[in-house]
Computed example of a mutant assay.
Amino acid sequence: MNDVSSYVPGPPPAWVENFAKFGLIAKGVVYCLVGVVAFMAAFELGGKSTESAGKSGIFKTIQDMPGGNVLLGLVAIGLLCYTLWRFTQAIKDTAHKGSDAKGMGQRLRFMFSGLVYGALAFLAARMVIGNSGGGSGDSRETLAAKLLEQPFGQWLVGILALGTIASGLYQIYYGYSGKYKKHVQSGGLKHEVEEQMIRAGKIGYVARGVVWLVIGYLFGRAALSARAKEAGGSSDAFQFLESGSYGSYILAAVALGLIFYGVFMFMRAKYKPIY
């Protein structure tokens, strides 16, 4: 009689792995560029501002490069691949999370991630065909405005703020506690590569969590004041970080962390098993 507990899931189909790797590379490119531009904005280098470090600003930076439309199109396709991979993980359970409460929670997280990067893929594609469609901060402002128009709108925006803050706290916890290490250490990597991935992942997840915390705080201000203009995206979060005491250094530290996160995405694409 077969022992179900000894079942070891096989690798996913090749197309899932290819989509995931291409998507992780595109995500890494975006985060590395966000980090570089945010670092430049922190010290006012090259005329860069925090607005330039938002997702639409980064896409514009790519578009202004030689062959920029082609490059941005590749990024859009990569982000779409990442989206489809996340949806596949959520619906087909290729990561084998199961159908219990904890597993469904993780699969919902995959779905949410797919929606976020699907929206970014859509924005990049619109810019390729000549319609920028507004900045990342504007999209969140629009979302806050739509929610505030609904019954109990301030409560809805408040719930979104709390959810974003919770996500930021989880990112920081995930990085600081080293919970992601089990996935890195299960890949049979060389010790040096494994150590580099662990170090880049820790710094990257914490920096990403800080940005999410600030975005959640901005949504919280929008909820309390019932003013959608208080909400914002990553560029607004960078501006908020820069505005405080030692703001330039704080922003620079977070920017370097985001570069590490981008590098971690590249290393995941190259070394980490895909599921």
Rank of each mutant, 00 (worst) to 15 (best):
G257H: 01
K27V: 09
S245L: 12
Y117V: 11
Y275N: 15
Q89C: 11
L80T: 15
E194P: 02
F43C: 09
I215H: 02
E149V: 04
L45P: 07
G244N: 08
A42V: 09
Q89H: 05
A26K: 03
I25L: 13
V211C: 06
G163Y: 02
M111H: 05
L162F: 13
L189T: 06
F260K: 04
F240L: 08
S245E: 12
P66S: 10
M111F: 14
T164Q: 09
Y117C: 03
G105Y: 06
I259S: 07
Q196L: 12
M1F: 07
L115T: 13
K97C: 10
L74G: 00
Y7S: 06
E141H: 11
R109F: 11
S139V: 09
F122Y: 14
D3F: 13
G233I: 00
P13E: 03
V211S: 05
V184Y: 04
L251K: 07
S113Y: 03
S167L: 15
E149M: 06
G201S: 11
G114E: 03
A223M: 02
R227K: 14
G232T: 08
L123G: 12
A38R: 01
Q196G: 03
Y7L: 11
R199D: 14
G78A: 07
P11T: 15
Y176W: 10
S225K: 04
E192P: 08
L33G: 03
D236I: 05
D100N: 10
G257L: 04
E51I: 02
R126S: 09
